[in-house]
Design a protein around this nucleic acid. Sequence first.
RNA 1: GGCCUGGUAGUUCAGUUGGUUAGAACGCUGCCCUGUCACGGCAGAGGUCGAGAGUUCGAGUCUCUUCCAGGUCGCCA
Length: 591
Amino acid sequence: MADSMKGLKRTHYCGDVTETGQEVVVGGFVDRIRNKGGVIFIVLRDRTGIVQLLFNDKSDPEIFEKASSCRGEYVLMAKGKVVERESKNYKIKTGLVEIFVDDLRILAKAQTPPFEIVSDSNVNEELRLKYRYLDLRREPLQKNIIMRHEIAKVTREYFYENGFLEIETPMMMKSTPEGARDYLVPSRVHQGKFYALPQSPQIYKQLLMISGYDRYIQLARCFRDEDLRADRQPEFTQIDLEMSFVDAEDIQECVEGFVQRVFKEVIGVEIPTPLPRLTFADAMNRYGTDKPDTRFGFEIQDISGIVKNTDFVVFRNALNEGGSVRAINVKDGAGTYTRKEIDKLIEHAKGIGAKGLAYIRWADEPNCSFKKFLKDGELETICNAVGAEKGDLILICADKNKTVLSTLGAIRLICGKRLNVIPEDKYNFLWITEMPFFEYDEESGTWVAAHHPFTMPMEECLEYLDTDPANVRAKAWDLVLNGTELSSGSMRITDFELQQKMFTALGMTDEEIKAKFGFLVDAYRYGAPPHGGMGIGLDRLAMIMCKADSLRDVTAFPKVQNASELMSECPSTVDEENLSVLGIKVDIQED
RNA sequence: GGCCUGGUAGUUCAGUUGGUUAGAACGCUGCCCUGUCACGGCAGAGGUCGAGAGUUCGAGUCUCUUCCAGGUCGCCA
């Protein structure tokens, strides 16, 4: 039987015990035991830190005996006097004192954990996720979870102070088949019908503007049934906001104030505003991505004009087919990469869809993979054009524009990481503006909405709506931080006629519109103030502020790549009785 | 669904060309130690080498299949 804590009331957290002379009661987990034979030191840990408990066999043999029976991770409560240590430990906050214990309770014994509960653990993540509740005892994870709380707290304070109302929107809503796959919830009352979990509260927050709530904020859970990435979980939290009687710049200004505040208050970093801006087109051309990491160089350069007369058939073909030849000049010693390292980069490029990469490796002399196709002086011309010097590696991709840009964008990032040239303490925010309104869908051969269908096009692009979809840009923008898409926002269409026109441009029939968004379209007939908003990824923000590599490190109970949870082993099967109440029969298709 | 990386004591790893009884460190158990602090010393327990099949006189090591985890592309309006 474990001891009871009767008669004891905690007075201090472990990390706060620093003053000598006082009587304290602390509780926590046994972090470490150092038994010297006649004296025992037990290090006790809670979420604030650690403190040393002292037991002496001369002073109270019964307590000493109990202390010597303790093992790692036992849950203890101890009462005693805070005394100065004989030999001090200046490395920890409570290292100058210790608690001379006169009442010890073992509140719970503990099995030996499957891995050590220490700060610098490099245990296999699979095992840590299976025993997530133990992993969460570790200091780095506790720090992240607590910082995430701080971020949420400052978020609420900022938006509340700026007149935003926090309003909850439904978790069970109508499924809208566009975009990401929905998580579905079967209805018992309406057999054969389903609710969907929200991918975002988009529609509801727009309705709230129509209802006149003017400024809305919610820390909203969102769900998307798509494959995971390090920065993508199937359920995540969005700082969701919407504002009326504003234009894009007003919303951006408000969000700039927010990031400034949260970085200052939570990690003490000053973010200068206004934040830099880049159009989508420029971002693609310079970085090959709509979420560029601007903390380092190696920008993409178009050398189509320079190489158009070479005899290298790969370049010629790409240009003849309407593509381009572009290069990145990788500095910081990449010119000394071995053939093997370059081959690995080329393999990676092939994985993305490129046919390959040409390169000029300049260790001592420029060494060019396509030298035999070059006439005198052409190599120098290329080197000069991309600003190459000794020690550089020039990687060249020739293909369709889309392939060239996405390939070089990805390779740029790999090189930056491998060469360790990305400064860790820098926070480069960037607005990506003038996002394209339509995207070309290769599969169906049609133009589809790049955003939800209520996104406002830029006024000056309206004339191209029917004639040149590629040229239509949206009043939509992203906020990027260090190469991670943090947030996405847009102005919404409030004009009924324009909305009809957009639906038509997207090839939607009246019946489709009515079935999918009938209630929303109707709502806009009753008067809607101009409005727009954003959704800011709280998890991603926390990930970057905690300097974590994965959302799993800032999420208490995350899912793994196949969207299951290793601890509880969900999702799981449901017995037939429960299914039959819902009118559901499982019919698994074997491949 | 494609590509890449990984899986050997509880944990982190080593394991040569395929060759005797698969090792180390940490952790764990017991004993010793009155000032440790990543305490120290002595002794000990602990392995279906992810699983299955194949090649071989012989497989942790080679081949195939499969499972699990991670990264990435597709996907994510």
